[in-house]
Computed example of a mutant assay.
Amino acid sequence: MTTHQLLPALTARAMKAAHTQTPTCPCGATRTLTDRPDGTVVRHADTVAKAHAPNTDPTDLTARLRTAAQLTGMLLPPLDPTPLHLHDRQVTLWPYGTPVDPDDPDAAPWEAAATLLAHLHRTPAPTPLPPMRGPLKALRAITRLREVAGDHPAAAPVLNAWTSLPAWARAEAPQPDTTTLCHGDLHLGQLVRHPAPDGPWLLIDVDDLGVGVPGWDLARPAAWYACGLLPPDEWTRFLTAYRAAGGPAVPADGDPWPALDIPARTLTVQTAALAIVKAVAADRPLDEVEGAVVDACDRMGSVPPELAPGFAK
């Protein structure tokens, strides 16, 4: 199904669900919130419909939906814990939540994100789940880099950094933790307030939810901090809140980096790979932020992971 065909069908699903939830639905325009190859999301009134990536495993997705339906204080619960089938796509239905305002960085809910993660990591999975998909997404980013931009001047340090990672981080071996419940793709875009507009913060997007290494969920802010892209005070707020909530990914005190170094390195490599792919597709040079993550990959090569107190130090 092409995007031209998918959007009207997905919109119809969202409208039907909205009218079922609220027969007096105020309607109004249906908005496309996201339209990417890995997911298309539309909103009608207070209902959101998501078409997941092609080839999404329906059994794994159902397990993730059931988990979200049971962990309602941490994850946004779906309207239906069973995915729908829309031609060749799996579709899920959700209540609308107010996202983080990208234009107000001072209001970024770092403490809320950290606390939710800590609670998630301490909660046994209520139903059997597949592995958390973070390493697999990193592998896909590297595969894409090799396919379309392997000869780019910035690709070499990124690929060198990738080969220095352990097999589990490259999705070539099982993760060393097979029981801890993880989100798998934590960033501030994965939080919403529900009920909208000012309910409590909840985590969204269950596509990568599973069991695995909990440090992965701290890896993106850790990597941003290590690359100099996240101010130290914001990183400290996040880490302090996670520890205060009893998060198990790092020690309760002392240096957190031994637990975070491998995940943070891997997320940096993934970010750099995707940055190069996007720059090549747009026929433009890397911007300042993209250059910073590539430079961090270059620095990784000079310090083995087991010796690194943070790869940008």
Rank of each mutant, 00 (worst) to 15 (best):
P102F: 12
E111R: 14
D106K: 08
D104G: 00
R122S: 15
Q90F: 02
T98P: 01
A112D: 15
P131H: 12
H87G: 05
L93D: 03
P126K: 00
R122Y: 00
A114K: 03
P95H: 01
T92Q: 01
E111M: 14
P126R: 04
T92S: 14
T127P: 09
M132N: 15
P109N: 13
P102V: 08
P102S: 08
P102W: 06
M132F: 13
P124V: 01
P126G: 11
L116N: 04
T92M: 06
W94F: 02
H87L: 13
T127I: 14
P102G: 13
V91K: 01
D101W: 12
A108P: 07
P95R: 02
P95E: 04
A114D: 09
A108G: 06
L120K: 10
T127F: 03
D103T: 14
T92C: 11
A118S: 11
V91E: 03
P124E: 09
L129Y: 05
V100D: 04
V100E: 09
P128N: 03
T127H: 15
D104F: 03
P105R: 06
D104V: 11
R89C: 10
L93W: 04
D104T: 01
P126T: 02
L117C: 12
A114W: 10
A112W: 11
A113N: 09
P102Q: 05
D101Q: 11
D101T: 10
P102R: 11
P99W: 00
T123I: 08
P105F: 11
A113C: 15
A113L: 15
P105H: 08
L116M: 09
P105L: 08
P99G: 01
T127M: 12
A114Y: 07
P131D: 14
R89F: 10
E111K: 13
A108R: 08
L129I: 09
Q90P: 08
P131Y: 12
P102H: 07
D103M: 07
P99D: 00
L117H: 12
A107W: 05
A113H: 14
L120P: 00
P128H: 06
A125P: 02
D103V: 08
H121G: 04
P124D: 08
Q90L: 14
L93Q: 00
H119L: 13
L116Y: 03
G97L: 03
A125R: 10
L116H: 01
L116T: 02
T123N: 10
V91Q: 02
L116W: 00
P109W: 12
P128F: 04
P102T: 12
D88P: 07
E111C: 14
L129F: 12
D106T: 08
P105E: 09
T127S: 12
P130D: 02
T115L: 06
P126F: 07
R122C: 15
D101R: 05
P126Q: 08
R89G: 06
P126L: 01
A112F: 15
R89W: 05
T127E: 15
W94M: 06
H119R: 14
D104M: 05
P130Y: 07
T123D: 10
Y96L: 05
A113P: 05
Q90I: 09
R89Q: 12
A118Y: 10
P109Y: 07
L93P: 05
Y96D: 02
Y96P: 05
A108V: 06
P128T: 00
P131N: 14
A113M: 15
